[in-house]
C-alpha cells in the first residue's frame, strides 16, 4: 500500500505540474494556436496523470472502473474538442503569428 501511495502522489504532483505549466503557457504564448497547444497539455497529459494517481488511491472496486471510464472518454473528447476549436478558428480567419507578420510585411512593401 505504501509504495502505491508514493506512486500515486508522484503522479498527482506531476499532473498538477503539467496543469500549471499549461495555464502558464496559455498566458505567455503569443497567438491563438500556440496558446491552444499549451491548453491541450492540460487537457491530455495532466488529466491522464491525475486520473491515474486517483485510480491508485482507490481500493480497486467500482470507483476504479468509473475513473477508467472517465479517462477513456477524456482521451477521445479532449483531442476532438481541440481539433474542432482549431478548425473553426481557421475557418473564422485567425492566422498564426508568423503568417500575420508575413502579411504585415507585404502590406508595408
Amino acid at each position: 500500500m505504501f509504495i502505491l501511495d508514493i506512486i500515486s502522489s508522484v503522479l498527482l504532483i506531476a499532473g498538477v505540474f503539467f496543469g500549471f505549466s499549461g495555464a502558464l503557457g496559455l498566458f505567455k504564448f503569443p497567438d491563438f494556436f500556440t496558446r491552444m497547444h499549451a491548453a491541450s497539455v492540460t487537457d491530455s497529459i495532466a488529466t491522464i496523470l491525475i486520473l491515474l494517481g486517483l485510480i491508485l488511491q482507490t481500493s480497486f472496486d467500482i470507483n476504479t472502473a468509473k475513473l477508467l471510464f472517465i479517462l477513456a472518454f477524456l482521451m477521445i473528447t479532449s483531442p476532438t474538442a481541440s481539433h474542432a476549436l482549431a478548425k473553426s478558428a481557421r475557418h473564422g480567419g485567425l492566422l498564426t503569428l508568423p503568417e500575420t507578420q508575413v502579411k504585415q510585411q507585404e502590406r508595408t512593401y
Binding site: 477521445i76 473528447t77 476532438t80 481539433h83 474542432a84 478548425k87 473553426s88 475557418h91
Partner: peptide
C-alpha cells in the same frame, strides 16, 4: 452548417 464537412466530429459524435 459550419461543421458539415467535419469528419472527425461526425465520427466522434456518432460514437458518443
Amino acid at each position: 452548417s459550419g461543421f458539415k464537412a467535419h469528419h472527425v466530429l461526425h465520427v466522434v459524435a456518432r460514437f458518443f
